[in-house]
Structure formats: structure tokens, C-alpha cells
Design a protein around this nucleic acid. Structure first.
Lengths: 337, 337
DNA sequence: AACAAAATTGAAACCGATTTCAATTTTTGC
DNA sequence: GCAAAAATTGAAATCGGTTTCAATTTTGTT
């Protein structure tokens, strides 16, 4: 059913019907009510493509999905979805094969030029991230989930990774640990750098020096947690505590500890960052895992909200949110043996 | 840059330019080449909304995302992305709050009527799933990931859940286990029913009867795995083996076994279905986990392909794929003590 | 009751592409 | 060399809405 036809059935002009449905003020209440109820009854709904062509709005927020589906992705998206379901805005996933940076840049350029989205959210930025400059020059509103040190102003939401790891490390130091290892995230990402910084600061504060052999960068997975923890614990001067990048990593760390006949929370302390996944909870691990916690889903919801505000015209340099991270102590951290 | 302007710069009509870019045959090779290279140089790209309005194609495949982000979701999507990146087709995630069935039906209706997508993929159907009838009556192409018993014909891709669990169970029975528990997926979903069926068949084949107390349905999570496994193992007539719904569930089962001072692969055998997550691999678990394996990512890729074919006009009743499932034996399954 | 102001409605232009149909140019056949 | 056929190009209609601007009706004031 098209507008023309629908309007004719109501004995009104397309103009009035369009205005009534779009909530314009210059249409009488009586007419608006009638139009609304008839639209419901007859099942009329404006063709989204025509609306978009005319208004220039795409009604969607773009998210790039790297081929390697990250574990956080689903939770973040689910959070976004929660906010967007009442905003008549879709999430557009654009697949990219990031063989190299150029490919990725091209993908962004395509997305913008074809006007499929009103804004974009980008993830896991690096300190100097070319995507930010590109999007800035293309003039498409965008929000960075994470932070970057690029000079061009941009909206961002990030969690306080530095402080999170700093407090986690301080906690371990307070317990008496002196050799603490860190299994960090991917090298080069801002969050990994921030976390490393927090780790160092906590040591420096107490006049301690970090052993570079006790720090690695890797992806967040059970397997990498296991491998690195094994390697640490089997080394000559083994650490008594491990700071892990995610609960998945911690899973592997736990396994490594057990595989060496040791016990988490006794022989080795473990603390990890928890993005709060519904299918794997730190509290349920054995022993329960001490964490720095920040809900990825909540971040998704808030990022969606902020992006909507950006689209509505909120100033870019006004949108900076740094979320504090909870420190939650459980059984996996205890004084060294 | 608009078509008009771009065409003028080339000294051609919009008609010819449009045809050249869309690959129509009636444009000379020389012209086509020139248009293509100039489009690249000047960065002309058709406005997607105008294209869609005119052609009626949305250029997107819809996926509904329930608020509770499922763990499989990201992997499936990532697989879809892999196929779609060369098809100029987006994935449109529509958030739904499924407070009740009616809400969900409304969401589908909206999606279809607003013409935002050319097709839809639906997940985790039930034997009698109202979504299938709705989509069928609305006339939008759709693919079911999973199966349903509804009478209206529909395209589907599913893995052979029944056989997977049947073989897993037979393997345990072959090892000598006689009391086997099953931690199944959500009650009412077709895949849970199929799995239960496979479980029963394996028993019946050998003249054994399944103890209903050894079967539960629940969501796939570490926590539910733990809770149910504990409950089974602490009961009077405890099972010697457990069939788990997912690797996440198995994680909890492992923990439960350990928490009771027992050992997986000795005191209790465990086998689970593995959707192949990059961040948690069955092979790396300790002991390594026997599984029935089928890549969720591969399913996503194939579903995207099939959906493209449906859009292109392939007959619905021609699209039925049942994927066999690999049985992979590792350390977690052994003869009962 | 008469007029101005405000509220409500509608006609027509427009968004930016695609595609039908007609016009023009080039090639082919004899 | 010329008519017919084939290849190539372009003008204009169209997709289904929104929005400008003008026209009409209603309300308010004196």
C-alpha cells in the first residue's frame, strides 16, 4: 500500500497524511488520530527507501565487523540493540576483510559514500588510528569505542583501563606479591597500552620495577591464557600472581595452574578483566575469580545513545566518557604462599 | 557527487553512465572503461537509497537479535559477513524485545513492510514456529537456520543434531557406560528435541531405557553446566557420563566434576557439542574434550549464500541442507571406572 | 458582522537514481 | 553505395515518499 492510495482511502492529501504520521504540529488532532488508526488498521507503512532518499537519513548506524569475530562483539551489539529498538534505527554490519589497512579504509569510504548509515562506531582503536582521520575528513559522524591519541577531535567512550589494571595490581602488591605477570591484549591497541601503563604505575608507586619478561600481548582466548601462564609458571623465577586480560584468558590461566599441580588462590593469584558475559561468569569459576568489571553490554547501550545524539547534532568535542571500573575481590587473589 | 553532475563531466547522459556502471550490455566497451575509471578517480558512487527506491531491492539481509545475545550469534554473523562482503549486501540487525510472541511477530511485520531487507534469516525455530507462517504469508524470502515441522514449505539449513547426539551416546554406551546424563539446550527448540531423540534412539537400539531424571533442558552456559552436573553427580544413582549441549556447558561440567574430587575422563566421561569458537577450543581443555563438531561460522557463510540464492529466485522447496556432524574423540571420554 | 491572524489542508517540486522508449550512429549484406 | 540490422546513446517517466509554498478554513477581536 502506497501513500497515494492510502491517502485517497482517507479522503486526504498525501501531504496531510505524511505530516500526520511524522508528527508535524500543523495537523489537527482529530485528523492525526484518524490517520494513525487507519494506518494501523490498513497496515500502511512508509517505504523506508523513499523516506531515506528524500530525507537523506539512512536510519542506521554502521559497525564494521572484522572477519575474526571478536568475543565481545555480540555483547556490545546486544547492548546497542537494546537502546536502538525504540529509536527506529538499525544496526548495519559491514563485513570487511582487513587484509591490510588500505582495504579497511576503502571499506569505510564505501560505506560513507553510499550513504547507507548516519554514523559509524569504531572499535579497538590504536593511538594513532587512520580510521579516525579518514572518518573525520569524510564528515560522517562517528563514535570511538575506546580511545586514540590522534589530534583530530572525536567523540569517544572508553573504560578506565589504566586505573582498572592499576588497582588490580595494587591489590596484588598489597597482598604481598612482588613478581606479577601480565597477559595483556593485542599489541598496539590503546587499551593494551593503557593497561600496561596502569600496571607499571602501580609498581613505580612502590619503587618496584616491572620485569619485561613478565609481560606479554596476545588475543583474548583460553588458549593464549594457558600458553602464556604455563610459560610464566615454568620459568626460573616464576611469578606468584597473574593479571589476565579477560575471563577467557583467565580460564586458560586456571587450567595452566592446575596442570602444574598448583592451586589458584593459594600458589598463584589471578585477577582478570571481566566484560560480563552471560555464559561465563567470574563468580562461578572455581575458585571464584577476582576481577575488574565493566559491562560490555552497558557500553553498547550507551554508545548507541551517544551516537544518536551525535546524529542529532551534539557537538563532537562534547562527547567524551570515561567509565570507572569496579574492582571485585573474590577467591582467586590471596597473599603469596 | 551526483549522477547528473558526474555524467556532465564525462560529456555523457546519466542513462549511459548508469548503464555502464551497472554492467548492462548495450554500452560500448570503450565508454564503459572510461566511465569506470573516471568514477574511481572522481569518487562517484550511486546513492544507495535512490538505487533501492528505484529497484526495490534493499541490499540487505535481516537478522533478528533477541535481547539476550546468544553466544553463537557472533560466530554465525561473522560467517555470514565472510560471504556477503563480495555481494554488496549488508546485514541488518533488528533489535527486538521479545516480551511475548506478539511483539516478535510485530517486529517481523515491520521489517517486511518497511522494505528494509530482501530476505530474513531466522534462528532456533520451534517445531511449530509462528514466525515461519508469518513470513510465508508476508511473501518475504527467508531461510530457517535449524528446522521446523510446520506445514508451509520453507528453505532451511540445519545440522544433524539427532545423529550427532546419537553417535555421541553410542560411543559412551560402547565404552560401557550405562547411566548417561544429558544437559540439553532450551526446551521447545527443535534442536533440543532432535538431540533428545538421538539420545533416546541410541539407548533403545540397545534395549536400554533412558532415566528421565538424567535429562534436563537449559540455556548454554558455564553456570548451567555446573549446576546440573553437580546435581546429577550428587544424586543417589549418579551417571558415569554426561552429554553436554555446548563447550560452555562442558566448562561448567568439568568444574562440577573437579569440585567433587573426581576426574573427567576417569570417574566421569564428558562429551559435548562444539560450535567451534575461536576463543575456547575443546582440544585445549584439560582433559581435552570429546565433541560432536560443526562450525557455526561455516553455517553462517552457507546460510548467507543460500539466502542470496533465494533472493535471486531459487525455489524455496529446493533449499534444504542437512549437515553431518563430526564426532571427535579425545581424552574426556573413557570406559567407566 | 467584518477583518486579521492562526490553523489546517493541498498542489506540485524534489530527492537521485533506473529504465522504457525513441533517436541516432555504426556495421553488415548485397 | 545503399538499405536494413545492430549497436549505442539520450530524453523523459518513474520509484514513493517529504516539504515548500500557496490556498483555504477556522478562530479571535473589535
Amino acid at each position: 500500500m502506497k501513500l497515494r492510495e492510502f491517502a485517497k482511502q482517507l479522503g486526504l492529501s498525501p501531504t496531510t497524511v505524511s505530516r500526520a504520521l511524522s508528527g508535524y504540529p500543523e495537523v489537527s488532532e482529530a485528523t492525526r488520530a484518524r490517520v494513525a488508526s487507519e494506518a494501523m488498521r490498513l497496515g500502511y507503512r512508509p517505504d523506508i527507501n523513499a523516506v531515506r532518499l528524500k530525507t537523506g537519513r539512512a536510519g542506521a548506524i554502521g559497525v564494521m565487523m572484522a572477519r575474526s569475530g571478536e568475543i565481545h562483539f555480540a555483547e556490545f551489539m546486544s547492548g546497542m540493540a537494546q537502546r536502538l529498538e525504540t529509536a527506529d534505527t538499525d544496526i548495519l554490519i559491514t563485513p570487511i576483510t582487513a587484509h591490510n589497512d588500505d582495504d579497511e579504509m576503502q571499506a569505510y569510504r564505501r560505506l560513507v559514500e553510499s550513504r547507507r548509515v548516519d554514523a559509524v562506531i569504531i572499535h579497538s582503536p590504536r593511538p594513532k588510528d587512520p580510521r579516525i582521520e579518514l572518518l573525520n575528513s569524510l564528515g560522517l559522524p562517528f563514535l570511538v569505542h575506546g580511545r586514540s591519541e590522534t589530534e583530530c577531535v572525536h567523540a569517544w567512550l572508553d573504560i578506565d583501563n589504566e586505573n582498572a589494571v592499576r588497582r588490580a595490581t595494587e591489590h596484588l602488591l598489597d597482598l604481598g606479591h612482588r613478581r606479577i605477570a601480565m597477559i595483556n591484549g593485542l599489541r598496539g591497541k590503546t587499551y593494551s597500552i593503557h593497561r600496561e601503563h596502569g600496571f607499571r604505575i602501580a609498581h613505580q608507586e612502590r619503587g618496584l620495577v616491572v620485569d619485561p619478561n613478565l609481560m606479554v600481548c596476545d588475543k583474548f582466548s583460553d588458549e593464549s591464557g594457558f600458553r602464556h601462564a604455563r610459560s610464566f609458571l615454568e620459568s626460573a623465577n616464576a611469578p606468584t600472581a597473574i593479571v589476565a586480560g579477560s575471563t577467557m584468558t583467565a580460564l586458560g590461566v586456571y587450567r595452566a595452574v592446575r596442570s602444574l599441580g598448583m592451586t589458584v588462590g593459594q600458589d598463584v593469584s589471578v585477577i582478570a578483566h571481566d566484560d560480563v558475559f552471560p555464559y561465563l561468569t567470574a563468580e562461578n569459576m572455581a575458585p571464584s575469580l577476582s576481577t575488574t568489571r565493566s559491562s560490555m553490554r552497558a557500553a553498547g547501550t550507551r554508545c548507541a545513545e551517544l551516537t544518536l545524539q551525535l546524529i542529532a547534532g551534539r557537538a563532537v568535542d562534547d562527547v567524551h566518557e570515561l567509565w570507572p571500573v569496579e574492582l571485585i575481590l573474590r577467591e582467586s587473589t590471596a597473599p603469596p604462599p
